[in-house]
């Protein structure tokens, strides 16, 4: 890469960063998310993972259904486990599944969208027909069916979310690639003898990367909420409990009738705050990628 292109890219990155910093919602979203990322990464320091084991919890003499005043910061559940420990370790699983599923979603969506938009013709028609079908199939039932068939573990959940939620990304990217393709400089580059790989890498990708990033950020909330719902319905991985799994266990074991609010409030609030943070960041990135949005929204 020439130093000129490098400079230009660095300048673009600097501009995006500057615009992001000047957006209040972007900064708030990012700060909040940072707190949760730190909690998730520092989980081993914050909470003893052995506390998740009911046998260990019983052996340590924890009380059952203790409210926050009676035991620790967030009380205990029906199996005497600390809710705080579940919250900290649950953040790890929820964030990991959310991010991993989003990466898969965006990868499938981007490949389909870029290939469809760039190649055009029959492959485009074929891919878009498939995309439309996947858009029409109800997303949650499909995820439920797939998860039921594949079995309950984290990787299957990631796979299920990725396989079910890529179509909207594919459509968005295809439209963007078509616009970029029509711009003059692609024709110019082609006439100079550039290969397809070069065109995609040097001309298409840099022009759609902002959109991909914004779209990815906005897809994380959907991934996290889907994981939560699947876990709540009993399709979560029993060996790595997420926030959704906590909500399921609280529900199944009668936390609501007992008014054991400390059992199900923290996990739900965690989901709500993380989802809001990603939404705020995503909207900011979207406005930067497409300045037209900033005026009205």
């Amino acid at each position: 890469m020439t130093s000129l292109a490098m400079q230009r890219r660095r300048a673009t990155a600097g501009r995006v960063l500057g615009q992001f910093r000047s957006s209040k919602q972007g900064v708030i979203g990012f700060s909040v998310l940072l707190v949760f990322v730190v909690i998730a990464l520092a989980a081993p320091l914050l909470a003893d993972v052995r506390e998740l084991n009911p046998v260990y919890a019983r052996a340590s003499g924890n009380p059952q259904w203790a409210s926050p005043g009676e035991f620790g910061a967030l009380g205990t559940d029906h199996l005497r486990r600390s809710v705080w420990v579940q919250f900290v370790w649950g953040s790890r699983v929820s964030l990991f599944v959310g991010l991993a599923a989003t990466i898969l979603t965006i990868s499938i969506g981007s490949v389909v969208g870029i290939v469809s938009g760039f190649v055009g013709g029959r492959p485009d028609a074929f891919l878009m027909r498939i995309t439309e079908w996947f858009l029409v199939i109800p997303f949650l039932p499909l995820a439920i069916v797939l998860a039921s068939i594949l079995g309950r573990n984290v990787w299957n959940i990631i796979l299920v979310i990725g396989v079910t939620s890529w179509p909207s990304t594919a459509r968005l990217l295809r439209a963007q690639v078509l616009t970029v393709k029509q711009r003059l400089f692609v024709d110019r580059a082609r006439s100079l003898g550039a290969g397809n790989g070069h065109l995609v890498a040097r001309h298409i990708l840099p022009n759609v990367s902002g959109l991909i990033l914004a779209n990815a950020t906005l897809a994380v909330p959907i991934s996290i909420l889907t994981e939560t719902t699947l876990s709540f319905l009993g399709l979560g991985d029993p060996s790595s409990p997420s926030w959704g799994k906590t909500l399921e266990e609280a529900f199944v074991n009668g936390a609501m009738v007992r008014n054991a609010w400390w059992y199900f409030l923290p996990a739900g609030l965690g989901i709500l705050i993380v989802v809001l943070a990603f939404t705020l960041i995503g909207r900011t990135l979207e406005e930067i990628a497409d300045p037209r949005l900033g005026r009205s929204r």
Binding site: P221, L225, T228, T229, F232, G244, L247, A250, F251, M256, F264, L265, G268, I271, L272, V275, L276, T279
Partner: peptide, 12 residues
């Protein structure tokens, strides 16, 4: 931004 069933749990 919240799981719909969690909202239901709180209301319930």
């Amino acid at each position: 931004s919240m799981p719909d069933f969690w909202l239901g749990m709180i209301l319930l």
